[in-house]
Design a protein around this nucleic acid. Structure first.
Lengths: 121, 121
DNA sequence: TCCCATGGTTCGCAACATACGAACTTATGA
DNA sequence: TCATAAGTTCGTATGTTGCGAACCATGGGA
């Protein structure tokens, strides 16, 4: 099993981020991770929006998010803990992720509060 | 030749926008259109970033941008005039396009001025 | 120590998407 | 009417994605 690889912050591209977040399942996963208090395992997402996601597919989605630089994954015993890298990305591309998240929220009918600075609690 | 179809503003999705703009050629085209004073024909983009784009490929890229709702195309004699729909999209997803454009600008080393409101001149 | 359950990954294949040359359509102008 | 220019469509080769089956790694029990 090859080791987990994460791009350095400077290797993260806008194209990569947009591509990763242009998939509804990945957006959903990312949103959940961004809202989570603690790191989340992959298997917490076997069900996404009434849809049952096969675990091989889920594994690919996590890999896509990881390689795009959107999340950081760490093996912890038998499972994996995932957290977003939103602080780093906010440094490199200020405002990008909040705007995308807000747009998704608007589309799903639940706009977020304005959030002037990094509101990511 | 089938007629040009444009999605209504309510049918435009965030996924569609992100997917369309996750391609470097399309971003380039969109950026040029957004900065242009007047509408632009397709053939103005046969060369993109030192790369010569075949016109069939270009045609597909324009279709992708059009069907994602990012641009509006109008046949004008033998050529086609393209304009962005950024005002409409700004209404539906405020801040999304400016943030993406800014991120691309940062990535290419030429950050844009802050632009508090719709700066789209 | 052995076995097994659990959480993820990898492989292989089918389905879908993309790039591009060749052939086509439409409009313009000589 | 013919030639040319701007785009589109088609066919094919190549890439990407989704998913089941098989696999790997870790953490408990007996």
């Amino acid at each position: 099993m090859r080791p987990l690889t994460h791009p350095s912050i400077d290797d993260i591209t806008v194209e990569g981020i947009l591509h990763a977040l242009s998939d509804p399942v990945r957006v959903r996963i990312y949103t959940q991770l961004a809202c989570a208090e603690r790191a989340n395992s992959c298997s917490a997402f076997l069900q996404v929006e009434d849809r049952c996601i096969p675990k091989s597919t889920l594994s690919q989605h996590f890999r896509a998010l990881r390689e795009a630089g959107l999340i950081r994954s760490e093996r912890r015993g038998v499972e994996m803990l995932n957290t977003t890298r939103c602080d780093e990305i906010q440094q490199r591309f200020p405002g990008l992720l909040p705007a995308i998240m807000q747009a998704h929220a608007i589309q799903s009918g639940k706009p977020l509060p304005p959030a002037p600075e990094g509101d990511d609690k």
